[in-house]
Design a protein around this nucleic acid. Structure first.
Lengths: 336, 336
DNA sequence: CGGATGTTTTTTAACGTTCAAAACACCCGT
DNA sequence: ACGGGTGTTTTGAACGTTAAAAAACATCCG
């Protein structure tokens, strides 16, 4: 494995000159640069990242804790990871995975990774209502950025990127309204989830704006399962509210809605329009296809990395980014 | 951030002694060790991994290419990653993610990561029929281990760990047989997939052994979707073969089967037993729950890491490990 | 007490890179 | 011819660690 020294010897220049050829080529005379580059090419030289990191004390690795507790966002985690990786690579960084217990128990792990210089900073996701990580990391002055707001806190420590769930629900409501629905229900989760409240709020606001009814049109599901979505839908259909549209808080719940509708001989998309959230692989694979709100993963990842890798003198700018989801329309909400 | 030097000064020993306290404590006199450890504790010292890696030329990072092409195993990717991470950490290693184009196009990326010393080696997954990576990496003498065999090759370059798909199918068939089914069908994929042939073979062999019929009881689905699974199931039901059990090659296809059965007024689990593959999160969340073959992720990850981190003098031992899937029984195969 | 033996600790020299400063080369105007 | 600038290249030191060798220190035994 060639080193700078060997390249330098081959090109008959000093070691530093080769280093400059790579990191500050404008400093070299054109002919020297070319000669050095030829030697680099010829010897198939690649800089040793450990030596570089030791010297510059920047490892260009970003830690991401791979979640293991069961959760709704798992179905799109691979999309997120891929986007995150790709975005990192665009700034010549990489993602380092690790596991940590949830909550404050996990903090030593974050601390350790940073202290041993395995990572420069962290991307947090799976943000929870009283997530202790943000405050702790900020206090330790460890760089991080959060995918997802810490809900119910008036001001959140540190930078974040999130998707506007309220706007997403509103988008779904408008779409169902445009396709002729007038009694649009919402399948949600208990109040404890900030995410759920956000999406619910968007549904309510948009319904009000369009002068659509909301009372009796919301059901809270106790867990994120197809079964529970079906049960909630049944409850809705039996309540006499006669919904002709259903905005579900997750694709899984929406799948439950589809199943219950089908079971009752109703045709999703024709009789009742249904939308889900997150545009998981399932949405495409189910029949009729499930209309769903796609999170702009590439944009999210790009923003996360932009914030994390911003030079520290700009670190105060634009550290809170609320991105818009996109409605992917499929058969489940075909014109009614 | 404390360094060895500072700890050494504090404990009034040489730098090397502190290093030894961490890497070869048996070499120190008990009282010295204790004194050094106190200083380490007090100064909250953590070794700088870059400096260590530079010196020892081992980074203790393992590369894993995050797949982006649509594929059946995505639904359990998060489980796999979590298991892999945890296994890596048990040997004080970590997983580094990267993206690369599929096939031979991606080889420069692997090469680069290794040459720049970002990783010690690789875990490959998403193994394809004519996967060029294995041969290439072996030729380059870059350490790797494959999750999944390269199919249709008599001898595969390099070590691998895989799950015995044939045994899995056989397990499903035996289970359906034990619960009273006698006409067990198989929902598969086209012949081009080695994985599909493996699982199909297991079904056929086990059926023969139990003297169950096989002719006319297999359908090949052209893609891995619920729709296609339902279509195939319909085809099966219309063929006059009257299957009372269905072994599906994936959870998604099995879901299609469940849907088609329900649509026809048949009760999955009572009238027809259905099993899927991979025990994705869906299997649990659907109703009735889907009986499915769980891949032993923790064991897989542990084996992958054991092979990858084996001292090179043992590298020839046990580098091919075929693990057994486990049948997770749920409502879809309740006693007939 | 002197040496042999074994244990513990220190010294020296790397690993491969980049930073800061110094050295060198060249051109220009006076 | 000389001082000053500008552009290019080299020198020396440092980043924090560990391997190998050397040195220092104990211990034991005859």
């Amino acid at each position: 494995m060639a080193t700078l020294k060997q390249v330098a010897a081959h090109a008959e220049v000093s070691v530093q000159t080769v280093s400059n050829a790579l990191n500050a080529p404008h400093r070299l005379r054109a002919d020297t640069l070319e000669r050095v580059n030829r030697s680099i090419e010829l010897l198939n030289y690649r800089p040793n990242r450990n030596a570089r990191s030791l010297r510059t004390s920047a490892v260009e690795l970003i830690g991401y804790c791979v979640p293991n507790w069961p959760n709704q966002t798992h179905l799109v985690m691979d999309q997120f990871l891929h986007a995150l990786c790709a975005a990192a690579e665009r700034t010549s960084r990489h993602i380092l995975l690790f596991t940590a217990p949830p909550g404050v128990e996990g903090m030593p792990v974050y601390d350790d990774l940073h202290a041993r210089r395995l990572v420069d900073g962290f991307v947090l996701s799976q943000t929870e209502t009283h997530d202790p990580r943000h405050g702790w990391l900020k206090e330790q002055k460890i760089p991080f950025v959060s995918f997802g707001r810490v809900w119910k806190e008036t001001t959140q420590p540190g930078p974040w990127v999130d998707v506007d769930g309220a706007a997403g629900s509103a988008l779904a409501v408008r779409h169902l309204h445009e396709t002729g629905r007038r009694r649009i229900a919402f399948l949600g989760w208990p109040k404890t989830s900030g995410l759920a409240e956000d999406r619910l709020g968007g549904w309510r606001t948009q319904c009000k704006e369009l002068e659509l009814p909301t009372t009796g049109l919301t059901v809270r599901c106790v867990e994120d399962s197809i079964e529970e979505g079906a049960r909630a839908t049944a409850e809705l259909l039996d309540s006499g509210q006669e919904p002709d549209g259903i905005v579900a808080l997750s694709d899984i719940l929406a799948l439950g809605a589809l199943r219950e509708l089908t079971r009752r001989g109703l045709t999703p998309g024709r009789d009742v329009g249904v939308t889900g959230f997150d545009d998981s692989p399932l949405a495409e694979v189910v029949s009729p296809g499930l209309t769903s709100l796609k999170q702009p993963m590439d944009e999210i990842a790009a923003e996360l990395l932009a914030i994390l890798t911003a030079p520290s003198d700009l670190a105060h700018l634009a550290t809170e980014r609320l991105l818009q989801p996109e409605l992917v329309i499929r058969g489940s909400s075909a014109s009614g």
